[in-house]
């Protein structure tokens, strides 16, 4: 399943990039991220509690930064497994310099397995909602000041 969207972050591109490049800052804005432990260069072990309402699971898995082209392009690959199945996703962020603010074009390719496939009809909506939460959080951090 492919989803995409655009967002505007209210800070110059360099500051946005700096924030994205800080794994802990990234982790703190990722919905449900409970642990992020580096295991190698650009590789992390992650524990996420993702989902919505009652449909929530704890996923253990890996997060890998697969592309980093400062200050324009950033790609991550995530895979996680829980009792309900697995999620694999590739996400790409592209930053566009708009002076005092930054345009973000994002896209994701999501693949699920196990019982999660039964909810496939809702996954794009859920993914967009979670992405929205992620960017809101980033924007809040940017506006709070310190990158």
């Amino acid at each position: 399943m492919r989803i995409e969207g655009t967002e505007t972050l209210h800070a110059p591109r360099d500051r946005v990039w700096a924030l994205l490049d800080d794994p802990q800052a990234l982790a703190s804005c990722t919905p449900g991220m409970q642990e992020l432990r580096p295991t190698g260069p650009d590789e992390f072990e992650a524990v996420l509690s993702i989902g919505i309402a009652a449909v929530r699971g704890t996923y253990k898995g890996k997060l890998r930064i697969t592309e980093r082209t400062p200050p324009e392009r950033y790609a991550v690959q995530v895979e996680g497994t829980s009792g309900a199945g697995f999620v694999r996703a590739v996400g790409v962020l592209e930053l566009e310099d708009q002076g005092a603010q930054t345009g973000v074009r994002w896209s994701g390719e999501v693949q699920v397995g196990g019982a999660l496939t039964l909810g496939s009809r809702m996954i794009p909506g859920i993914a967009r909602m979670l992405a929205g939460q992620f960017f809101q959080c980033l924007d809040r951090k940017l506006q709070e000041g310190s990158p």
Partner: peptide, 14 residues
Amino acid sequence: YDDSGQLLSGSFMD
């Protein structure tokens, strides 16, 4: 099925 071989209609809901 989706491209990764997952059955998307695997319940009586679908």
